[in-house]
């Protein structure tokens, strides 16, 4: 069974970031079912691990519990990353978490990016801030990013329909990408160490 991890960086309860994350996760799970490739979808609230992530950043290694979480992320077949918009970019929880992940953990991994924000005018933050961060880490970022502004939740049927369409399009992209791939292996630095002769030749 494939594994999809949902990283949600919302801070409050209830959180519109989490609401968006849940809707995207449902759509991805539905589409993978439809492709005959059902997935286990695990939501992670980054806030619950903020202290451990900060400790990892400061001392350079994760606590045993936090190490399991990092392994879960690096071993996932796909990620759904959802952040609130802070200062026209992702919030610091996202960056903190990215900074303690192994640099190679997301290489080649399909990622769907999404964000909630206080105004639709910030919608380009997905392409101007979140996408370059993941590109740097060599993640495979889905072409469609999903930005949800307040009007997407409260306004009439038309705008709600637009959000749903965006979620469906992004979910279909991610599901297709996960479906066509072999199951992911967790990044293992030992497995990838060249032997001595190869090292000397480099």
């Amino acid at each position: 069974m494939k594994r999809v991890v949902v990283l949600s960086a919302g801070l409050r309860q209830p959180s519109s970031t989490r609401m968006l994350a849940d809707r995207i996760a449902e759509a991805v799970a539905r589409d993978l079912d439809g492709l005959g490739d059902p997935a286990e979808v695990s939501p992670i609230e980054l806030r619950d691990h903020a202290r451990e992530a900060l400790n990892n950043l400061l001392v350079g290694f994760p606590s045993p519990e936090f190490a399991e979480l990092l392994d879960q992320v690096s071993g996932a077949d796909a990620l759904i990353l959802v952040t609130p918009t802070f200062g026209a970019t992702y919030n610091s929880l996202v960056k903190l978490f990215i900074d303690v992940l192994d640099e190679k953990a997301l290489a080649g991994k399909p990622v769907l990016i999404a964000a909630s924000g206080g105004t639709g005018r910030h919608s380009m933050m997905l392409d101007h801030a979140v996408r370059p961060l993941l590109t740097y880490l060599h993640a495979v970022v889905m072409p469609t990013g999903v930005f949800a502004a307040p009007e997407d939740w409260g306004a009439g049927h038309t705008t709600e329909g637009n959000l749903r369409q965006r979620i469906d399009r992004a979910a279909a992209e991610l599901a297709a990408e996960v479906h066509r791939r072999e199951p992911a292996k967790a990044y293992d630095m030992f497995a990838e160490t060249p032997d001595f002769e190869t090292l000397m030749g480099q």
């Binding site: 290694f61 994760p62 045993p64 190490a67 032997d195 001595f196 090292l199």
Partner: peptide, 23 residues
């Protein structure tokens, strides 16, 4: 760095891990 462990192993030299700070 596993590369350094590999180097130590290749030559049959010692390998030292300063495991303070590490689990």
């Amino acid at each position: 760095s596993p590369e350094i462990a590999e180097q130590a192993a290749y030559y049959g030299d010692g390998f030292f891990h300063n495991n303070i700070f590490w689990p």
